[in-house]
């Protein structure tokens, strides 16, 4: 560094934000590496502009056939939607009740280590699998229909409530629990008197949120044969009845929106 350079530096001090990755070698090699990987990946998924362009008229054609939506078989549509809603309600009711023991078992501050590991293992396993995969399993095990869908959603709900409620239980104020313990209350009384009041609002919120999720999921599960409106939709597309398909989609969207709005409304009121 020459003398004049140093002088310029002292005259005009410059400041730059510190880069997230401080080592320049690491920073640049990561960036270049990512660039190469993306180029490689594009080749791997057969990204083909010609195919994309040739598909556009087909999409337009399909949309043309879809319109106007065909509501003539409304009874089929209605019974499908009803089955989905009932699946959602029953599995939510079962799931949020069975989720309580799961949550208790998965709370580090309530149960001994092995029990905790067991319940966390269950939650981890169920939550790793998407609902559709669980549904495929139940359909294979007990056959097509809403029953398989209901079991799927119930199972998923127990893991959902179990995990999120357990997190709430682990974050409670230990002082309140200590005080109830000091009165000579045993484990179960501490649970209902010292812990339940602290986590109840969260539990109610979770339950409503899960009902909302279950409804959306119940719509999809039919695609793998687990009952509900999804099955009707799948069949409609299979028979190229796009206009009926669009009718089903529209009704699904409306019902999901209503469910989401309703659950948001209720949850905002209990917080």
């Amino acid at each position: 560094m020459s003398h004049s350079d140093a002088e310029a530096h002292t005259l005009r001090p410059s400041w730059r934000p510190r880069p997230t990755i401080r080592n320049p070698w690491l920073r640049w090699s990561l960036l270049i590496g990512c660039g190469f990987y993306i180029i490689y990946a594009i080749g791997d998924v057969h990204l083909n502009p010609e195919r994309f362009i040739s598909g556009i008229p087909r999409v337009a054609e399909m949309l043309g056939v879809m319109l106007p939506p065909d509501f003539s078989r409304w009874d089929l549509l209605f019974s499908g939607i009803l089955e989905s809603i009932q699946m959602a309600i029953i599995s939510t009711a079962l799931g949020i009740v069975l989720g309580i023991p799961v949550a208790v078992g998965a709370s580090r501050n309530l149960v001994p280590g092995p029990v905790y590991a067991l319940f966390r293992g269950y939650i981890g396993m169920v939550r790793t699998l998407p609902e559709v995969l669980i549904a495929i399993f139940f359909v294979k095990a007990i056959g097509f229909g809403a029953f398989a869908g209901m079991l799927t959603l119930t199972t998923a709900s127990t893991a959902f409530v179990g995990k999120l409620l357990a997190e709430e239980i682990e974050a409670i104020d230990p002082g309140q629990v200590e005080a109830i313990r000091a009165t000579g209350a045993g484990w179960s009384k501490v649970l209902i008197y010292g812990i339940q009041p602290q986590v109840l609002p969260r539990y109610i919120g979770l339950s409503i949120y899960r009902w909302d999720i279950n409804f959306r999921e119940s719509v999809i599960l039919g695609i793998v044969g687990a009952g509900g409106i999804g099955a009707t939709l799948y069949n409609a597309f299979g028979r190229y009845e796009y206009d009926f398909g669009l009718a089903i989609l529209l009704v699904m969207i409306v019902v999901v929106l209503i469910a989401e709005w309703g659950s948001g409304e209720i949850r905002s009121r209990i917080q």
């Binding site: 002082g175 309140q176 000091a182 009165t183 000579g184 045993g186």
Partner: peptide
């Protein structure tokens, strides 16, 4: 121990009331 504890009253610095009750 629970049976004995029911006859031992305890009072806390942070009161430790169950807040939502």
């Amino acid at each position: 121990m629970c049976r004995i504890r029911r006859r031992m009253g305890m009072i806390f610095q942070e009161y430790n009331l169950v807040e939502r009750l």
